[in-house]
Design a protein around this nucleic acid. Structure first.
Length: 493
RNA sequence: CGGGGUGUGGCGCAGUCGGUAGCGCGCGGCGUUUGGGACGCUGAGGUCGGAGGUUCGAGUCCUCUCACCCCGACCA
């Protein structure tokens, strides 16, 4: 008992400390989240992974509706001419658009794009719907998939087809549109933190990193485990009246003046599943936040001598009935697997709480609860199981968030010199908070020399700038000129 | 699109000099087991990525081709 416990009870899983990207691929396959598909870059989302997405959809959708956003559905295919109307937009997306050229066996007069995102088809329809200020705002969202032809796919994080939601709103004023974009980013931030236990740094993208055609792009940047790289976990765009002008969305305001409408869009994809894997996982596999875990508690009956089997299973069933449906619980009654196998199997799958129940427990009228994150054991009498499991699930959710928060805070460091930053990036040391003069040339140099990018200009820093000069040295990390912004620089998935 | 690599049962791999396609895991059946990945017996499963060539004979040699993976440029 006094021996150091092994870091992993799961045999054959790649060690994340030695090969984090290999571990990611391995754990997704072995935990049955996704599988390869016949078309390169596309993946099958298996039931266990899809259930996580369903749980996310439910809670995020409720948050949208609370802000007045309704769901709708717009077509998959966009006429080429429509997609090409906004020059910057098509320039940004054209390298990754998939095209439909044939209908049946007839060549189409005009090729149809499979949506890489839907601004280009939703805006023209909004143009039909909007005549008066009374028609605004329009607050719609759709749950859909989009296609972006990827050269280097990675399960969940970057696949050629991905599941997401895209919100599209239309407003009478620039201020209202901007406020909506910021509001939805805050929805993402709160959702990621509360449900997925993923803390993020919210901020605005630099001009070179912003969405094609946007006035401003807002982002929530999360820090992955292992290599401490960044991942854009959600994004919202203040499109100003750019798309309103291009797609001719016009309305008469209260004074009778004809104006272009202002719009926003915002999206969060199933890459957040990958984020959860990378943020919380360990050498034994997944470690799922209870709120989105498909199975929150797994009962493993230890079937001893023949005579006890029926009694143990009956007790397990009573425990299950006590917990269900408030808690997503299952019994692992597989008869051909040892308890050790089952323990490892459910740890691999990241189930937050394991409930062990064997002949000894049966005799004592108790169960053993084991937390996935700490492996701490807790002995609980039958009549206290419901409350103990509920409390443990909450504690695990809190611990995962606290751990991730501490990591993000500890590994986001003020850096004063370019050389130091280069070293930190090469060493995968985390996020670098540095001054930036605002010149795209300095930004480009960082990217060329280190592959790292400006992830965002954090809002907290923005607010502080009004009162005091930028932190760190107050100078641009690259050129040494006075800094205009404080930015986060890191490599990203 | 550049650079590198791999294709052999479901998965991971071996296959020497060209000579009857093998191993581990997994899978089916039966039995014994069960508190951190149990064991015995038994069984099923293969056009060796594809096409062409050399040869009495090709998983192995030659030519072409396809697919996938990894590393770079682009991305929710």
């Amino acid at each position: 008992m006094s021996q150091t416990p092994p870091t992993s009870f799961v045999e054959g899983l790649i060690d994340p400390t030695e090969n984090f990207d290999g571990w990611y691929v391995d754990v997704i396959q072995k935990a049955e989240l996704a599988d390869d598909a016949p078309v390169r870059g596309m993946k099958v989302v298996r039931p266990y992974g899809y259930r996580m997405w369903e749980l996310m959809v439910a809670s995020l959708d409720a948050r949208f509706k609370a802000t007045g956003v309704e769901n709708a559905y717009f077509p998959l295919l966009i006429p080429k001419s429509m997609l090409e109307r906004e020059a910057e937009h098509i320039e940004g997306f054209s390298p990754e658009v998939a095209w439909v050229t044939h209908g049946g066996n007839k060549l189409l007069e005009e090729p149809l794009a499979i949506r890489p995102t839907s601004e280009a088809i939703i805006c023209p329809i909004y143009a039909k719907w909007v005549q008066s200020w009374r028609d605004l705002p329009i607050l719609l969202n759709q749950w859909a998939s989009v296609v972006r032809w990827e050269d280097r796919p990675r399960a969940f994080l970057r696949t050629s087809e991905f599941l997401w939601q895209e919100g599209h709103t239309c407003h009478a004023t620039a201020e209202e549109a901007r406020a909506r974009a910021l509001q939805m980013l805050e929805v993402y931030r709160e959702f990621l933190e509360t449900e997925l236990a993923i803390p993020t740094i919210p901020g605005v993208k630099s001009p070179s990193e912003k969405f094609a055609g946007a006035e401003d792009t807002y982002t929530v940047e999360a820090m992955m485990g292992g290599k401490n790289w960044a991942l854009q976990a959600g994004t919202s765009h203040d499109l100003s009246d750019h798309f309103g002008r291009v797609f001719d969305i016009r309305f008469l305001d209260r004074e009778g003046t004809r104006r272009y409408a202002f719009s926003t869009s915002f999206g969060l994809s199933h890459r957040t599943i990958g984020a959860m894997v990378m943020v919380h996982g360990d050498a034994s596999g997944l470690k799922l936040p209870p709120r989105v875990a498909p199975i929150q508690a797994i009962i493993v009956p230890i079937l001893g001598r023949k005579g006890d089997r029926g009694e143990v299973l009956a007790a397990a069933e009573r425990i299950r009935e006590t917990l269900s449906p408030a808690i997503r619980v299952r019994i692992d009654d597989r008869d051909d697997r040892s308890p050790g196998y089952k323990f490892s199997d459910w740890e691999l799958k990241g189930v937050p709480v394991r409930i062990e129940l064997g002949p000894r427990d049966l005799a004592a009228g108790q169960v053993v609860l084991v937390a996935r994150d700490t492996r701490d054991k807790l002995v609980v009498p039958f009549d206290g199981v419901r409350q103990a499991v509920e409390e443990l699930l909450e504690a695990i959710q809190d611990r995962l968030l606290a751990t991730a928060r501490a990591r993000l805070a500890d590994l986001t460091v003020n850096v004063g010199t370019y050389d130091e930053m280069v070293e930190r990036i090469a060493a995968n040391a985390g996020f670098n908070r540095v001054g930036w003069c605002g010149d795209a040339a300095c930004e480009a140099r960082v990217k060329n020399e280190t592959k790292a990018t400006i992830r965002c200009i954090p809002f907290e820093e923005r607010a502080r700038q009004r009162a005091e000069p930028p932190a760190a040295s107050g100078l641009c990390i690259v050129c040494g000129q006075p800094a205009q912004h404080e930015v986060i620089i890191a490599r990203a998935y």
